[in-house]
Write a protein that binds this DNA or RNA. Structure first.
Lengths: 151, 151
DNA sequence: TTGCTCCTCACGTCACGTGAGGTGGC
DNA sequence: TTGCTCCTCACGTCACGTGAGGTGGC
């Protein structure tokens, strides 16, 4: 919780290592509109990322990996993150209460939807785990039975 | 728990609908060696599947969807299922205790491995769920604060 | 100036999707 | 015989992987 006022930036290779993907993935996400294109960047110039970009990318990857969403589905569900990024950047520059309220109102149903998806996944995994435990106990029971006859 | 002795068979389209994939996926899995190739099938003849095949396919898809495994990873992890399929088919035709014991011994560590992967996934999802709840509470708190000032 | 990382094509790959054109069983 | 489902190519697509050849900042 230290006051970080110095806007640190990262190069694409640093970001890739931080979040555990390749630079290709990051450029591809930019192509598909999942990461804000820096329209000020000259053709051929290096891409630069902020801490907020790294956070956003981590959230996208978590949705992708844990929920198995396509990039198209990510675009929809990640608008909450988009809104939050806008919120973080504009919170100070645009002090309008109405704008802040609108951003929050938009974000809530999307985060709620994410929460629902995560819960549904957890339920399926719980069922899977129960089935595997049952299977394992059955196998161990058979092993004991066979071992008795063999030994 | 009825005694089903009549070996029902299914066509590829029936299997596809039962498990929720396309026929292309089933043929592709056969190509990649995930489903036993029926070597007796003539070129151009229809594929026929048993209940055991449907069960095996369901297990493969669960590993793919819930754990996000590649088909190559499925090949490794699904050998337990392979063994179990062999077990089901040979259990009566080959009464050798040693063979049965060997099949069970091979299956146990693989099912154990699956169980570990499922637990790790569940833990990650639990963490994700906690973060989303926190985020949601934070948003609702902000909404109340903003609402108070606006109203 | 020398490395190192970055850049933009652009073709390859994995896991299928999607017709094209033809054959086989109720 | 008429549908319906199946068959085998074979090209398309999504989400990147992987060089090829070249430019830019400590």
């Amino acid at each position: 919780m230290t006051a970080q006022t110095a806007e640190r930036t990262y190069r694409i290779g640093e970001v890739a290592e931080l979040v555990g993907v390749t630079t290709r993935t990051i450029r591809y996400y930019e192509e598909r509109g999942l990461l804000g294109k820096d329209s000020a960047r000259a053709k051929g110039a290096h891409r630069l990322y902020t801490d907020a970009d790294v956070t956003r990318l981590r959230e996208l990857l978590r949705l992708r990996d844990l929920l198995g969403l396509s990039l198209e589905e990510l675009v929809e569900l990640a608008e909450a993150e988009e809104a939050r990024a806008v919120l973080r950047q504009r919170w100070h520059s645009d002090p309008s209460e109405a704008v802040r309220a609108a951003i929050v109102e938009e974000a809530i149903p999307l985060v709620t939807r994410q929460l629902e998806l995560v819960r549904a996944r957890r339920a399926k995994l719980a069922e899977f785990e129960a089935d595997l435990k049952k299977k394992l106990r059955s196998l161990e029971e058979r092993r004991r039975t066979l071992g008795m006859k063999a030994g």
